[in-house]
Simulated assay, not measured.
Amino acid sequence: MIKTETAYRRANEKLKDHKAYIANEKLRLESMGLSKDQISHAVQPLLAFKGELEQDIQHYEMIKQGIFLPIETIMEVGKNLIAHRIYMNLSQAELAKRLGVSEAQVSRDERNEYEGATTEKIQSVMNALGLKTTIHIETAAV
């Protein structure tokens, strides 16, 4: 998950470089006499990485527009908190100030996507971001 503008710019540069690398790799493999199927098979991992990077970039762009994916499990709450901070154009340093903690603490929490955070910490972050939540629990189909 891309969490900062700097990381977003780096991801776009990496994507641009990776596309060029894939094109060059295809030409190199072609010059070795490999068939189109062999080339396709050989570059499949490169294309998979490119696809993941494109998805990360698209997700960040959606967040910046205020488009949030629904939370389907409690484990996704942390990603959603980060997404809302990004959408609000609030830096980790600004969030840290609101929380009364160090920027390093916010950075660690976000790096781990708030995994293992207490409900009190989650609620504090939500309060600092001006968020509220409604939880709807359903019986899962077995």
Rank of each mutant, 00 (worst) to 15 (best):
S102G: 14
L81F: 02
N80Q: 12
N80P: 00
K19G: 00
I74N: 01
E72D: 04
A140L: 14
K36T: 08
E5F: 05
L47C: 02
D109K: 15
I74Y: 07
I39Y: 09
L81E: 06
L27R: 15
E94M: 13
Q92Y: 04
Q58C: 03
L131S: 06
L69E: 07
L27G: 09
S124I: 09
Y21V: 01
T119W: 14
H84E: 02
K16H: 05
L34M: 14
A7G: 06
Q38A: 15
V125C: 11
E138K: 15
V77H: 05
H41D: 14
I2F: 04
E52L: 10
H84C: 01
S40W: 13
H84R: 13
E30R: 15
R111S: 10
H84A: 01
Q38S: 12
E25A: 08
A117H: 08
K121L: 14
T73W: 08
E54F: 02
E30H: 14
K19Y: 03
A117Q: 08
L29T: 13
V101F: 12
K79L: 10
K19I: 03
N89G: 04
T139V: 15
A48E: 09
E115A: 12
A11G: 01
R9A: 06
T4K: 08
P45A: 02
K132G: 09
A104W: 14
I39V: 13
R98I: 01
Q92M: 13
Y114T: 11
H41W: 06
H18L: 11
V101Q: 10
F68P: 07
A140Q: 15
S31L: 14
S35F: 02
A48Q: 11
E113A: 03
Q44N: 09
A141T: 15
Y114D: 05
